[in-house]
């Protein structure tokens, strides 16, 4: 293994490295494959010994079962409501904040950023106790609003950290021209700055969506009525039992995570570069 980049062509060494690379990725992501193929197995094949690496009698019966017997549609709808609302709130607050951080010249910006980064690190399962009491006093228990407000604390810090460098790249000179033409701060933000940061904001929005979509602790704590629960709580109740119908659990999990994996595959390159540029700056 060498950390230097050889300058010669790819050749035999390149193909060998590629093959080993494919094997490493395949091995690492094998659990994801296992989740999908388990979902297509029959109730007898799922307990086959030895386990089959590919379903012999592939069936959709687990998918039919979870949608007709387990309210998976309702769970998914609740997850979507929570994820989209959290994403919207996070992106509005995060974009305004990141824009301000890139324009205000003051030590206060530093203080603000450190405050947000530090607050963002507090573990959510430990905030669950005071959150529960506070939202109870506000009369917001058993509302999606409470879950959205709580989950935004997890996504907003992340969004600010990653949006700040994106907004900082927009040259101030462009905005100055707009100001001379009589634009207000709000108009300049909307018409000059935002169009230039659209792609970066889209990536942060996608990651925010994914984080909120998989949120488990806050809905578990703040929602007690089953008809409001999102999919992770549904999957948990499915697994929590002593005995689990694993082909059905995996069918539920597959349906639930497929949108996440699609978002990831579509935006992979941008997500990778976005994450590496934000976290260490």
């Amino acid at each position: 293994m060498s950390a230097t980049a050889p300058s010669e062509g790819f050749g035999l060494r390149g193909s060998t490295l590629t093959l080993i690379g494919i094997a490493l990725v395949g091995l690492y992501l094998f659990p994801v494959y296992w989740m999908y193929i388990s979902a297509f197995k029959t109730s007898s094949e799922i307990f086959a010994d030895p386990p089959t690496m590919f379903p012999e009698n592939g069936t959709l019966s687990s998918f039919v079962w979870i949608f007709t017997q387990e309210h998976v549609g309702r769970y998914l709808r609740n997850s979507l409501i929570i994820a989209v609302s959290t994403m919207a709130l996070t992106i509005v607050l995060g974009s305004l904040g990141a824009y301000a951080m890139s324009r205000i010249r003051s030590r206060a910006v530093d203080v603000a950023l450190v405050t947000v980064v530090v607050l963002q690190t507090f573990p959510e399962a430990l905030l669950a106790t005071p959150m529960f009491v506070i939202f109870r006093e506000l009369g917001l228990l058993n509302t999606h609003l409470a879950v959205v407000l709580a989950t935004t604390t997890k996504t907003l810090g992340f969004a600010l950290v990653f949006l700040r460098p994106i907004f900082a790249q927009v040259p101030f000179a462009l905005e100055e021209a707009a100001f001379i033409d009589g634009a207000s701060r709000l108009q300049s933000f909307r018409l000059v700055v935002f169009p230039m940061v659209r792609v970066g904001v889209l990536v942060v929005a996608a990651l925010t969506f994914v984080m909120a979509y998989g949120e488990f602790v806050y809905p578990l704590t703040l929602l007690t009525r089953a008809e409001l629960q999102p999919a992770p709580v549904g999957i948990y109740q499915f697994v929590g039992a002593e005995y689990a119908d694993w082909h059905r659990v995996m069918a539920f999990a597959s349906v639930f995570v497929t949108p996440v994996l699609l978002i990831f595959l579509l935006l992979q390159r941008r997500i990778v570069s976005g994450l590496t540029s934000g976290a260490l700056k």
Binding site: Y28, L29, P31, V32, Y213, G214, I235, V249, A253, L261
Partner: peptide
């Protein structure tokens, strides 16, 4: 990174 994108609860179930 696909592994890291999955909801942790789903990873626990899997």
């Amino acid at each position: 990174l696909a592994a890291w994108m999955l909801p942790p609860l789903v990873i626990g179930a899997l």
